[in-house]
Design a protein around this nucleic acid. Sequence first.
RNA 1: GCGGCUAUAGUUCAAUGGCAGAACACCGGUUUGUGGUACCGGGUACGAGGGUCCGAUUCCCUCUAGCCGCCCCA
Length: 486
Amino acid sequence: MAKGKAKTKAKKTKKVKTVSKRKPKKIKVAKKNSKKISVISVSANEKKKIQTEDPILMQSPRGMHDILPGEQLYWNQIRKSLNHAFLEYGFQRIDVPILEYSNLFVRSIGKGTDIIDKEMYTFVTKGRDNVALRPEFTASIARAYIQHGMNILPKPIKLFSTGTVYRYDRPQEGRYREHRQANFDILGEQDPVLDAQLIQLASRIIDGLKIKNVQFQINSIGCPKCREEYLELLTSYFESKRHKLCHNCKKRLESNPLRILDCKEDKCAQVSAGAPQSIDHLCDECRTHFKYLLEYLDELEVPYIINPRLVRGLNYYTKTVFEIWSVEEGKKHSLGGGGRYDELIETLGGESTPAIGFALGLDRLIMEMKRTKVKLYKESKPRIFLAQLGELAKKKSLKLFSDLEKGGILTAESFGRGSLRSQLRTANRLGVEMALIMGQKEALDGTVIIKNMSSGAQETVPREKLTALIKKILKKNNVVSVRPKK
RNA sequence: GCGGCUAUAGUUCAAUGGCAGAACACCGGUUUGUGGUACCGGGUACGAGGGUCCGAUUCCCUCUAGCCGCCCCA
């Protein structure tokens, strides 16, 4: 008994109605007819076809999920702060396709990365094109930049984009095959002040969403020049400790030695601890760049942690790399990340264009918002319910509803229902302040009953005075009473 | 990609080798034109496919999905 009560209470405190995440449903097809079919003579082949016809699973594909109306409050909040942020910081929106030719990603992100080697959604189209669902935005942005000759635009060019990205990975909470990212890129400038500004922008967005316990991890992995020397040093170091490395890292030694630094295996971490660090082997230019970046961040009062072992899973990065972590109870999730990619545009065939960008994982931001119990802005909801009774009143109230809407008054209704009782029950559940009631009598008289839902008092008013009266009452009751006009 | 746990109603959870149950939610009713409380009634579920068995939601296998750990990242 007590247990049941506690449960109910716990349930009531839940803000967003959750929906089962693991329940597949299927539509049963033509079950009734199956007997008939076997009675009528049907070829064995056809019969088999009917029996083995795939049941339609009422289940989203693996790792993909719906964002239900109950979740949209969170999403609205995110959209709102992203829209503010990108405008305030002078970004222009760009939308790029969800599909690109596969080799665009291969060339930019690079072989030897998990994204390319294991997680790409590639397929061949009817026209025999090799395409892939985008695993990230930057490659497309770079392609669009080159394709549309954006190099002639005044620099820096700041581009904002948001949408879904795809990685064929094993799903877990907060790790989906389809997830949403917001992406910011600044092209055409190499000054570290932009690196700093971009990181501050990320920090502003996250602060604005009231997400707590966030760390900015920063590193510099140098430019191709100094990295080449550093990689030689690093490789020979790891080569000398090869026997102490895990299986994966032995492979990484050939494919992507930088990533060994990132390995979480104990023995590899021990080896890595003694490894040469990229920030100690930067060329003059890269060292200066990094130094200034840190100074700017200090000036902007953006707290950061230098992580010499931070290496990103994409090969196009140069100099600055950073990741945004949420840290709680010893666990960390990445909320976003990015870095400078001064060589990418040129690699893809454009003219040499320095650039920097980052992406935020929106589904993860929402996870964090839920965890930190972020307060949500309430959406304007109807404060009036229109109830009708009888055929004539139904007709008239349909018109009344539209008149109220024109007057900017949000109204709820359930015209499909007959009984006044159930309509008022709904009105009550919606928490409206007033109910308008129109029955046969009122419809004939050209009047409407206004009922105050908290006191129960009601009065009959002529229709033509209704809109003005409602506005007056709503205003008196305070809050924003009328929907803002477009 | 690897390892583990799980799958029963819209939700949270029971029970059971032989008709599957509760709570909450939903819909309707309690004088045909008045909500909240109360009372009454109603619909809806064994993830899919095989196997063992007279009989499987229950035992076994396969698949699928979710969750956890690893890996990876957002």
